[in-house]
Simulated scan of single mutants.
Amino acid sequence: MAHVEIDYPRLYWLSFAVAGLVTLVRSVVQGLAGVTVQTLLLLVVGMVVFGTALRGLRNPEASGAPTEPTPLLIVAVLAATVYSVFTLATIV
């Protein structure tokens, strides 16, 4: 059986990049129906999360992301994944 090497910092930031992108898509879809305060807040949150994740992905080792499978890493990746999947399901 082959040994699989996981880049934990990259996985951490990638999960947040996807969650930020999904939030941006959700705000755009909601904005098509009408711009509200909630839509604007979603847009700002999506931009901040996506921008921070992209900055972390540029240099994941020096970004402060977990480098081992710690509880923080597991919870953050699972939460971002669940958020992204359920948010995409509500958009479609």
Rank of each mutant, 00 (worst) to 15 (best):
H3K: 10
E5M: 15
D7G: 05
P9C: 14
R10L: 09
S15Y: 06
F16V: 00
A17N: 07
A17S: 14
V18I: 15
L24Q: 14
L24A: 04
V25N: 01
R26F: 14
S27C: 11
S27E: 06
V28H: 08
V28M: 09
G31Y: 11
G34S: 10
V35F: 05
V35A: 01
T39W: 03
T39K: 02
L40R: 08
L41A: 12
L42K: 00
L43E: 03
V44R: 03
V44M: 08
V45N: 05
F50I: 06
T52N: 07
L54R: 03
R55W: 15
R55C: 05
G56L: 13
G56R: 12
R58T: 01
N59D: 15
N59G: 04
E61Q: 15
E61T: 09
A62C: 02
S63M: 15
P66K: 10
T70F: 01
T70V: 04
T70N: 06
L72E: 15
L72Q: 13
A76I: 01
V77L: 11
V77F: 09
L78I: 13
L78F: 08
A79H: 00
A79I: 02
A79C: 06
T81P: 06
V82R: 00
V82M: 03
S84N: 07
S84I: 12
S84F: 13
F86N: 03
F86V: 10
F86M: 08
T87L: 08
T87P: 02
L88Y: 07
I91C: 03
